[in-house]
Design a protein around this nucleic acid. Structure first.
Lengths: 131, 131
DNA sequence: ATATGTGCAAACTGTTTGCACACGA
DNA sequence: TCGTGTGCAAACAGTTTGCACATAT
């Protein structure tokens, strides 16, 4: 768990260089700054591998894109349906995972997404109607 | 918000007739028992419409399929990476949404997914390696 | 008649995969 | 040399969408 290829290293680095939750395509473009010859397929392959080993998190917020997160600690994802931004909210304790454990379920990864309107959009009165 | 077509009614009914979290295709096959001529496109269109109005929930557990849930109350989804089953766990209170509110975020829908191994799979020693 | 919804099938798009080649041990 | 990973591009699959027709008011 150390012998990373240059490509995987760059992918991991790109993901950890941001506090957003980028898509595969964003990472692809980012990594190309360092390794112009890298291919999208390689990005997907490595992201899948990293997610499978638990080194990164794959988050599906329902916008049709897979998002990735270098922060694997349990935290809330606040997904704004107005600007599309995904905000993090650190959790002091993961009561939900504990609850799941009490019910016989063995938690491994937790992905909590709350959809709504973020503070900024609300302030700008960019509120979207009932949609 | 009452004038539902026969198709939409059937889709809603099919979704609420099960305690699983079916995919669009499952619903499609289910509804075809009543309305054999219904098309997949119609199912998708209605599911999207129902999810947009908040009458149902669209859940992405990262298996490549969109899952739908007729229960829109905040609850945990326990996704077993062994058998693929999605279990519900009712929440008495949604502390996370409250936390988000305190941080200026206006929650509308909450989707909590915990990945792990369910009780049944664990009992059967179907435990999957580090994967 | 008009507006809304449907069935059908083609199109779309993010993701996956096969294959030949490159690189490190 | 051998195994693993890469680049490329074609293939895949779930979902969306355009269009003509059906249905209800």
């Amino acid at each position: 768990m150390k012998n990373y290829s240059r490509q995987r290293e760059a992918i991991l680095q790109a993901l950890r260089s941001t506090d957003t939750h980028p898509t595969a395509n964003w990472i692809y473009n980012k990594v190309r700054e360092q390794i112009p010859s890298i291919s999208l397929g390689t990005v997907y392959r490595n992201l899948s591998a990293l997610a499978a080993t638990g080194e990164i998190l794959a988050i599906d917020v329902g916008d049709g894109f897979e998002h990735y997160d270098g922060d694997i600690s349990p935290h809330l994802h606040l997904s704004c349906r107005c600007c599309g931004n995904i905000e993090d909210l650190v959790l002091e304790s993961d009561a939900f995972s504990q609850l799941a454990s009490e019910h016989g379920f063995s938690p491994e990864t937790s992905i909590y997404v709350i959809y709504g309107i973020c503070k900024k959009c609300k302030k700008q009165n960019l509120n979207i109607g009932g949609n």
